[in-house]
Design a protein around this nucleic acid. Structure first.
Lengths: 210, 210
DNA sequence: CCGGCTACTGTATATATTTACAGTTATTAA
DNA sequence: TTAATAACTGTAAATATATACAGTAGCCGG
């Protein structure tokens, strides 16, 4: 078999190892495994480890205490270990999707649990129209990709091939995109006449320079 | 003394531990340390570990093999700690070092290349005194740990056991800590009369919620 | 029905690891 | 000068840990 699947129990063991490392910063011993699962024999843990080793999700260094290593394959089996980088979207070229390859400037690994909702990408903000919300020119807006927005949320909207960041307010078919800066005027959109696409919600800000 | 400095040798030991963990994914034993440094006695390693523990850069779990943990303070001492998470410092208890264990609320992995200088920790900002610089209440300030500041930089300063974030200006022995909000008054310090500690420089901002 | 796998119990042991105790030498701060 | 600290050597021992060997029981595909 090419894809060796883990049994339910093996996945439990793997999860425990992963969580143990997360918590203690070093891998568990056989007896710590046994204690957690209620094994009366350390050999129960040993054979589980051997099985996981054979299925290439962990590595075991022989004769070494706590010599357990999570191999890359383990990441696909136990959730929450994922750490995919966020693409940084710079100037969005007219007519291209925000996440089109040509708009991606860079990639950064940022802890997704940091923000109120999981961000899908970072958008470099240009202009000062959201200064009042503490979003300045050059800031990176963490964006959660969704087409739905509620009143008061900060959205990434696309209007006539232009991408802007504004506060969202809707009453029936009338949408207002509100800046947070008295020097700028609100944008009013009638959905019956003009097309408006919500690219996502702003869930956080990163300012790379002060 | 609040800032316990490491000796050259202790820094070497700490570096080795850090590199060992990076390479093996688990901490070294006393004899592995001894072998690397050429100690003929495991006790040489033991006493180094005790010293590092006393200086709060590592933790040692008693009676546990490989029970060494790198504490947040270690990151400021050993460079190139690429993928280590940044500690989040919340309310700083009076009289304790910013990076003391009791002040650490959480840890987040944030790409260090994102910011203008390498951040050592994140500090949760309270209050609106820096609103004009786009730093709002609840924001996380990415801080680069250094005691040196230049005019115009945003600093984390400690004054009378209080930690504040302000813009720095110095003329001789007279230091001004400037807020960026007309509702707040500048803080003036005469270095000959009052003690002022620069904990670090603000190198970026993360806003976890909008 | 057999062989191979999973999931254990139970015992035993070599060895890996921590850690205490007793010193030595050099450097630094009071 | 003295005391404290750093940086080790050397020995010993308790205990933490890995791991082999011998079983039991259930399940599955051929």
């Amino acid at each position: 078999m090419i894809t060796e699947t883990l049994t339910k129990r093996q996945r439990e063991v793997l999860s425990f190892i992963s969580e143990f490392i997360e918590k203690h910063k070093f891998p568990p011993t056989r007896s710590e495994l046994s204690k957690h699962f209620g094994f009366r024999s350390p050999n129960a843990a040993e054979s589980h480890l051997r099985a996981l080793e054979k299925k290439a999700v962990i590595g075991i260094e022989r004769g070494v205490s706590r010599g357990i290593t999570l191999l890359p394959l383990a990441m696909t089996e136990v959730p929450g270990t994922a750490n995919t980088p966020l693409p940084l979207v710079g100037r969005v070229a007219a007519g291209s999707p925000v996440l089109a390859q040509e708009n991606i400037e860079d990639e950064y690994r940022v802890d997704p649990t940091l923000f109120s909702a999981r961000p899908h990408y970072l958008l470099r903000v240009t202009g000062m129209s959201m200064r009042g919300a503490g979003i300045l020119d050059g800031d990176l807006l963490a964006v959660h990709r969704t087409p739905e927005a509620r009143n008061g949320q900060i959205v990434v909207a696309r209007l006539d091939d232009e991408v802007t960041v504004k506060r969202f307010r809707q009453e029936g078919s009338r949408v207002e995109l509100l800046p947070e800066n008295p020097d700028f005027d609100p944008i009013e959109v009638d959905l019956r006449q003009q097309e408006l696409a919500i690219e996502g919600l702003g869930v956080g800000v990163i300012r790379p320079t002060l």
